[in-house]
């Protein structure tokens, strides 16, 4: 019995390593970022300009970067949510069994295409199209980034929403049909409302993925730290700033610390989104 007990304690230790890693992530992000709070102080992060390298005065306002992330994410969700919801309904409710077996994995391929490959595709195919269509000087802007990110959100939202729609009990459909409702009335007024919490969770997971995406936006958004709502303007997101600037900063400098603060803000946002999405899925029994 003694040996079994030792083994069990060993497994508890191994399993706790996930908690350890999460703890270490928070610890080391704050450790590297901390000196910034003393000098120049956290208020500097609320500046409305991000000019990390300057001969006069460096400015480290996260707002323009956050604005870039919000704009690109909004475009991505505006495009991907309706498309994904319709596709999920089609796959779950309309498609033939064989068709479903092929469609779902095929759309999920999108999720396994590396983001740098999608970014490359955006750079050489999508950006020139956008440039030509709107008659711009460059196709590298928030719209191109948003469309590319929509492609990354679609497989997540389709897959998780389809699971949610599938888990609506068949009795709901039968009851609705028996009362004389048509197929579409059943889908839109009975099945989809019942699956709504799951679909909402799917959208949140997709949003989390889009906010955290780095390479594709770095390659196609034009990287200008502007506060703008114009989708045809170049923007710079939080993730892209870290990736683009971290390689060139002296370790330990104020700029370096500011980039770690950007990382902390990103971590907290995605942590919040995932936490809520998880609460929803546990509450409504959508957890697979």
């Amino acid at each position: 019995m003694g040996r079994d007990r030792v083994i069990q304690i060993g497994f508890v230790g191994v399993a706790s390593s996930s908690i350890l890693v999460v703890g270490l992530i928070f610890l080391f992000l704050f450790k590297e970022a901390a000196p910034f709070a003393k000098h120049p102080g956290l208020a500097a992060l609320l500046d409305n300009q991000w000019i990390p390298v300057s001969f006069q005065k460096e400015r480290f306002g996260i707002l323009p970067l956050a604005a870039g992330t919000v704009l690109v994410t909004s475009i991505a969700m505006l495009v991907s949510v309706p498309l994904s919801a319709l596709a999920a309904v089609y796959i779950a409710e309309v498609a033939q069994p064989l068709e479903r077996e092929i469609l779902k994995p095929f759309i999920e391929i999108l999720a396994s295409i590396p983001s740098v490959v999608l970014g490359f595709f955006g750079l050489v195919v999508l950006a020139p199209l956008i440039k030509q269509f709107f008659g711009l000087n460059t196709g590298l802007n928030a719209l191109t980034g948003g469309l590319l990110l929509a492609l990354m959100a679609i497989p997540t939202i389709v897959s998780v929403s389809e699971d949610a729609i599938n888990s609506v009990p068949a009795t709901y459909r039968n009851g609705s049909m028996a009362l004389g409702a048509s197929r579409m009335q059943t889908i839109w007024r009975v099945v989809v409302p019942a699956a709504l919490p799951g679909i909402l969770g799917a959208v949140m997971l997709g949003t989390g993925r889009v906010i955290g995406e780095t390479m594709a936006v770095l390659m196609v958004t034009g990287n200008a730290a502007l506060i703008t709502a114009n989708p045809l303007s170049p923007v710079r997101t939080m993730t892209a700033s870290i990736a683009a600037e971290m390689g060139e900063v002296p370790f330990g400098s104020i700029h370096y610390q500011a980039l770690f603060w950007v990382g902390i803000v990103l971590l907290l946002i995605t942590f919040g989104l995932n936490f809520v999405a998880r609460r929803i899925s546990v509450r409504y029994g959508m957890m697979r």
Binding site: A15, V22, L24, L29, G208, T214, G263
Partner: peptide
């Protein structure tokens, strides 16, 4: 304990990849 482990796993799954980069730089590289 189990609940915390599960929360840690979902949290890890949602951490943006660039944040892993920052973490790796801070902990492993430096």
């Amino acid at each position: 304990l189990t609940e915390t482990i599960r929360l840690a796993i979902t949290t890890l799954a949602g951490v943006p990849s660039i944040v892993f980069g920052l973490f790796g730089l801070g902990l492993f590289v430096l």
